[in-house]
């Protein structure tokens, strides 16, 4: 291996099981599978509580990714795929989830998931995924009221962060903190286009900008874009951020300062699986429960 060939863009894939939520004979077991453009998420719920969760990178084939992420979620549980009463697929690759009984758009699932993660006070959700940004407004039950579909490209999303991590040789999970390490906030980059991110970043580096400053400029541009979307749907408190970028403190703190508004804090997801990155899969598993109960009636 060539020295320095560490894969900086690689984020942590994980699988967690919460044995205290173990299913009993009469439990309703449902699952949600969210196949995103960059990451795949699966959540298994027992009576509407998270029992197992897994997050991994989406491969080149959506059906394979769905199978793999589901198998991983089932690992170390007492369950087989056939034990699950109802599975809902969602996300960009939702039509390609072979085991799903039904599919729903990620919009509805993210709203439901955010409602589960943070409770009924969530009114606005900003979902920053691998290839798009969505702004969603919902009511106290997590029902969608209005939403803004993504822009025309992947500008300023998780994928762009991966490209920059690779170029600047900074592990992706540290980028947010690194970007805050600037004396004063630089002007935002002129475009957040993923295809031009490398070129623009390299040009700035050659002009003598530090890595921190380049990241700060890029993230500021991303945050401005996000705030524009939020203002279009009308940003009401409380605001929740879901998707992979919810873990990026560099983005979150900039969005907060631009809006003059706090976002809901990151829950202790390692303890109960309420990971905002998996909000879509959590919502899908909750819908699966509702749909299963509706079908039984």
């Amino acid at each position: 291996m060539i020295e320095g060939s560490q894969q900086y863009w690689r984020w942590r894939e994980y699988h967690l099981v919460f044995p205290e939520k173990r299913p009993k004979q009469s439990s309703i077991i449902t699952a949600g599978v969210d196949i995103g453009s960059v990451s795949s998420k699966a959540v298994i719920m027992v009576n509407g509580e998270i029992y197992s969760i897994s997050i991994m990178r989406t491969g080149s084939s959506s059906p394979d990714s769905a199978k793999k992420v589901m198998e991983w979620a089932l690992k170390d549980t007492e369950l087989k795929l056939s034990d699950i009463h109802y599975i809902v697929g969602t996300g960009y690759g939702r039509v390609n989830v072979p085991m799903a009984h039904n599919t729903l758009t990620e919009i509805a699932c993210h709203a439901k998931g955010a409602n589960y993660i943070w409770g009924p006070t969530v009114r606005t959700i900003l979902d920053v995924g691998g290839q798009d940004i969505k702004a969603i407004k919902c009511d106290e039950k997590g029902k969608v009221l209005s939403f803004l579909m993504n822009d025309k490209c992947a500008a300023g999303t998780g994928r762009g962060m991966e490209v920059l991590a690779d170029l600047l040789k900074i592990p992706i999970e540290e980028m947010g903190a690194v970007s805050l390490n600037v004396d004063e906030e630089p002007e935002p980059v002129s475009c957040t286009c993923v295809a031009f991110a490398r070129t623009e970043a390299m040009w700035l580096l050659r002009r003598g900008w530090t890595k921190e400053k380049v990241l700060a400029a890029y993230m500021r541009a991303m945050a401005i874009r996000m705030c524009n979307l939020l203002q279009r749907v009308g940003c009401e408190s409380e605001l929740a951020v879901t998707g992979g970028q919810s873990k990026n403190v560099g983005i979150i703190s900039r969005v907060e300062s631009l809006l003059g508004m706090k976002t809901l804090p990151m829950p202790e997801w390692e303890k109960d699986g309420r990971d905002p990155m998996a909000a879509g899969a959590i919502g899908a598993a909750l819908f699966a429960k509702a749909l299963h109960e509706k079908a039984k009636k």
Binding site: D139, V144, L145, S146, F147, L148, M149, D151, R225
Partner: peptide
């Protein structure tokens, strides 16, 4: 209950 969808760009 209204569901308003915005399709477009900025």
């Amino acid at each position: 209950t209204c569901i308003i969808t915005y399709y477009g760009y900025m």
